[in-house]
Amino acid sequence: MDITRATDNGASPQNQGVRALFPWYVNGTLNEDERAVVDAWLARHPHARAEVDALRHLHRAMRARPPHRPPDHVWARIQAHLPTALRPWPRWLTWAWSALFTLLFALFLWATFQPGIVLRWYVHSSNPTQARVWRVSEDGHARLLASLSLSPDWRQGTFVDPFVRPGRTYVYRVEFIDQAGHVVWEQTVAERADRIWGYQTIIVVVSLISGWIITRWIIIWQRLPMWPLLS
């Protein structure tokens, strides 16, 4: 705040800034620097002291007005409502619930729509007790993805590999093992992950939107004036 220009008549923007501080100069809440600025300004503009004096009168008159004490029954009413006044959750808990909901919803959608490479097979002969699903990399290295125990009357099965990159081709080998541990049948299949990306994106986006909606819902629900309904 520039108060070095003492030649003006008090109407410059700088002086307007000092004048704007008068109410707080009077109520005593200015810091030392601001107070010194106003004091210095008033020393150079004595005509403005009348304005400050008037504000002091206003301040005294305002403070002289008797404060109102709330009737006792207000406190009694507040106390009566306290047991039913719902305390909102901490913000982190709201977000934690929303994150959990989003995750569970995403898992539900993922499990329902299975946005990955789906392997389905039927067994018409022999009696395998176990199925092993391998993913074979380009260098021929096979990684076991799943080892499934099969019931005696089992005839068909499904396996979903959701951890695939869109656009890439994956080679799978499915082995069926009998009770003696021999491979009774196996099949190798190559599958391209073409439309996976779209499905996965849709599931993630839908889950995030649902999580956001549930967050908003929790926040709005906490702000509802429910205590009159519960009392």
Binding site: L21, P23, W24, V26, N27, G28, T29, L30, L55, L58, H59, M62, R63, R65
Partner: peptide, 8 residues
């Protein structure tokens, strides 16, 4: 400002 004496 004048009744409650709050700062700006």
């Amino acid at each position: 400002v004048f009744g409650q004496e709050l700062s700006y």
